[in-house]
Nucleic acid binder design. Structure first.
Lengths: 257, 257
DNA sequence: CGAGGTTACTTTACGTCGTAAGGAGTCGCA
DNA sequence: TGCGACTCCTTACGACGTAAAGTAACCTCG
């Protein structure tokens, strides 16, 4: 499933995101659940089963049927929006600038990287139409605050914020989805790669000749840290290295007008 | 729906990707379809309806039932893999280096940007476990070939290829999914934004004070090209600007050891 | 204290999806 | 001529999100 942010009534969605649910003294039976409980259960289920979690599963975790959730939440899309924003509440919102913007941005990026690792399903929530929740705002505000300290104008920073965001998301996707897919089929990353590349080499023996430049990239390797799985190690190294290049670009922008 | 690459038999998937289907003289009725026909129909349907297209829809476009497709293709996942790789066949595989690597990388990135605009559903195919098809290889080989000309070692280039890829994908997603979501609900981007931000401002009047740095970024604007929709214009500007920063970073890496 | 309206939650049901199973008809080859 | 392989169809299953309608709990007002 792909979730586009809030296809329902915008007012209802945004009220839920920013205000929570009103809890006055109302007639009828006492609510046994709450939006917060449902959102937490949703996050727990999604952490286990990925974005393809079902309303029935969330209901079951709370000892209710799927339809009970619809008393609190307009639909699955809105629930995902709430889950998305609530998950982001676990992220820092302030970074120290004592050593300048560069270590701060690096810390921000690593926090995001780990966050995506904890909640891979978040990567599936559409980035195009931001959920516009308070915690998402806070997270980007934190990055913006760091970058404003470079002195670059807002006009330039918008592209930079985007670039950093896209990069971190993309890099995180590389391992997050690998893990998810492995979990779905019960295969570990390694096995998946072995099986596939073995068949590929068998069917197309002269791959290295057909794509010589890729061969160059793939085969220039340093000794590997054996404590991490191969793919994960690779992904983390590429993350650090790519982020470094990106930050060098910002540094160049700061240095020159 | 989210598609993880080839969860089925790896051999079957990769054979289909690299060899196509064998068409000897076989008993039984003459095949009325072919893998290629099905893949083309799939791309056409996905271009219209997004990744949530159904096997039934693809079959109908070919005057068959959904089940008829299963004679040629093991399942929807594998079909998506094939669609993904075939769509990539429309991309250039060689870029001239007469003016150096920078304009070449820029051209590559813009070609990808437009490609994602033509086939937004491609952005939904998992990047984590590459489909490993010949055309995907060719596209990355093209980028690798450009970057090798910088003289940087493969070890460094891997992170850079990743960074460029993630950035372009992420930036493209911003408008591609906005368009798709607009199409799904019949709302244009503008309307969607207006409706949401109006409610947001109403419910949270002092947004600008709560997130002052975001406010700085958002309000430092140049005159806008009125020929493009607002969001699209914004996205394209951020794309160009962010790509510039990224390329500056590569330039720094090339200049220094 | 009792009636009426409101609410929480359930059961049932609909339309969608991917695809498994089995059957009908068609063709190459013995 | 018939066997076996093949294409394609119909039917069916179990999942999904959620609409509709019912039941029981609870507050407020008379």
């Amino acid at each position: 499933m792909v979730v586009y942010a809030g296809q329902g009534d915008p007012r209802r969605s945004i009220e839920l995101l920013w205000r929570g649910s009103a809890v006055e003294n109302r007639p009828g039976p006492k609510p046994g659940l709450s939006v917060d409980l449902i959102v937490d259960a949703g996050i727990a289920v999604a952490d286990e089963q990925g974005m393809a979690f079902s309303m029935r599963a969330v209901g079951e975790r709370l000892g209710r049927t799927a339809m009970a959730l619809y008393t609190y939440v307009p639909g699955k899309n809105e629930l995902v929006d709430l889950m998305y924003d609530r998950a982001m509440a676990s992220l820092p919102t302030v970074y120290v600038l004592d050593d300048g913007w560069r270590p701060a941005v690096t810390a921000w990026a690593h926090d995001m990287w780990e966050f995506y690792g904890r909640h891979p399903w978040v990567l599936q929530v559409s980035q195009a139409r931001p959920v516009l929740g308070p915690h998402e705002f806070a997270v980007i505000e934190a990055l913006a605050a760091i970058l404003v300290s470079t002195g670059l104008p807002g006009r330039r920073l918008r592209g930079i914020v985007g670039a950093i965001n896209y990069f971190v998301r993309g890099a995180a996707q590389t391992i997050a989805e690998a893990r998810a897919a492995g979990g779905a089929t019960g295969e570990a990353d390694e096995e998946w790669w072995y099986a596939r590349s073995a068949v590929l080499v068998e069917l197309e023996p002269d791959l290295a000749k057909k794509f010589p430049m890729l061969h160059v990239l793939e085969n220039d390797r340093e000794p590997v840290d054996p404590s991490l799985p191969y793919l994960e190690n690779d992904a983390l190294e590429n993350f650090r290295s790519g982020l470094g290049v990106l930050l060098d670009g910002i540094e160049a922008a700061v240095a020159k007008p």
